[in-house]
């Protein structure tokens, strides 16, 4: 209807797509917001923060690699349940997951981010940026927390988050895709569903643009992560080789 070359999709189809993607997101989101509230999770106490800070750099890296890998496994399961994803050839499924799974983990982080005290759910409690000091990459940690803060300030519903996650995962501009056109079709449909849901929820017009801007922020976070990993690996090649999760190494070329 806006004159662009978008696929013709009925409102009923968009509602159905939004419903399926939202259901898949909730089934695979690792933590439900209500569960975290019920668990009455606390912030780390000062001595606990100090014990994380005193951990050897490689031990903290290993712990974070493990947590990221766990979160990514849920994202893979989410991807598998997105309409049309499993119809793509396996090369393209892998290309999209290699490029997009960490981005979706970063998006999902805003669900477990407490904006009142700038903390994030990690290792069974809420942690501020200082908990991650031993990693030796304060700039990346600051960027991740800033991103979570900005995302959570948009107050997206689970349905909106689900569709935005699917939209990011189905990015048709990733290198090495065999059937770009097919991915583009899926991404366009997802964007229409997201637009439809935002309108239905009477969100102001700027939200979709704000979300589009987040795409480049996500790419920047992922490239920062890759740089930090390369720097870490240069110093501790054996730790990465023998102690990091195989899926993490497969995804990030470690």
């Amino acid at each position: 209807s806006n004159g662009e070359t978008s696929p013709t999709v009925s409102m009923a189809e968009l509602d159905h797509l939004a419903h399926v993607v939202s259901k898949s997101h909730l089934e695979t989101c690792q933590y439900l917001r209500e569960e975290l509230q019920q668990m009455n999770c606390q912030n780390f106490l000062q001595d606990e923060v100090e014990s994380y800070q005193k951990k050897p750099r490689e031990v903290m890296w290993q712990l974070c690699a493990l947590k990221i890998t766990e979160a990514i496994q849920y994202v893979v399961e989410f991807a598998k349940r997105i309409n049309g994803f499993m119809d793509l050839c396996q090369n393209d499924q892998i290309v999209l997951l290699k490029a997009g799974s960490l981005e979706v983990v970063f998006i999902r982080m805003c669900r477990v981010f407490d904006s009142h005290n700038n903390t994030i759910y990690f290792d069974r409690k809420f942690a501020g940026p200082d908990v991650f000091k031993a990693l030796g990459c304060d700039d990346l940690i600051t960027s991740v927390f800033d991103f979570a803060k900005n995302m959570s300030s948009l107050h997206l519903t689970e349905e909106e988050l689900a569709l935005f996650s699917a939209f990011v995962l189905l990015s048709a501009d990733r290198s090495w895709l065999q059937d770009k056109l097919q991915v583009e079709k899926l991404q366009q449909k997802t964007q229409l569903a997201l637009q439809h849901v935002l309108q239905k929820n009477q969100r102001e017009d700027g939200v979709l643009n704000k979300l589009r801007c987040k795409v480049s922020a996500l790419r920047s976070l992922c490239s920062q992560h890759t740089e930090k990993l390369s720097a870490f690996r240069a110093i501790y090649p054996d730790i990465v080789r023998t102690h990091f999760p195989p899926l993490y190494k497969e995804l990030f070329g470690a």
Partner: peptide, 20 residues
């Protein structure tokens, strides 16, 4: 395929190793 063995497995399994 060898390079992405685990991703292949996760994509092919009807359920992932994570306890959903």
């Amino acid at each position: 395929k060898e390079k992405h063995k685990i991703l292949h497995q996760l994509l092919q399994n009807s359920t992932s190793p994570v306890d959903l």
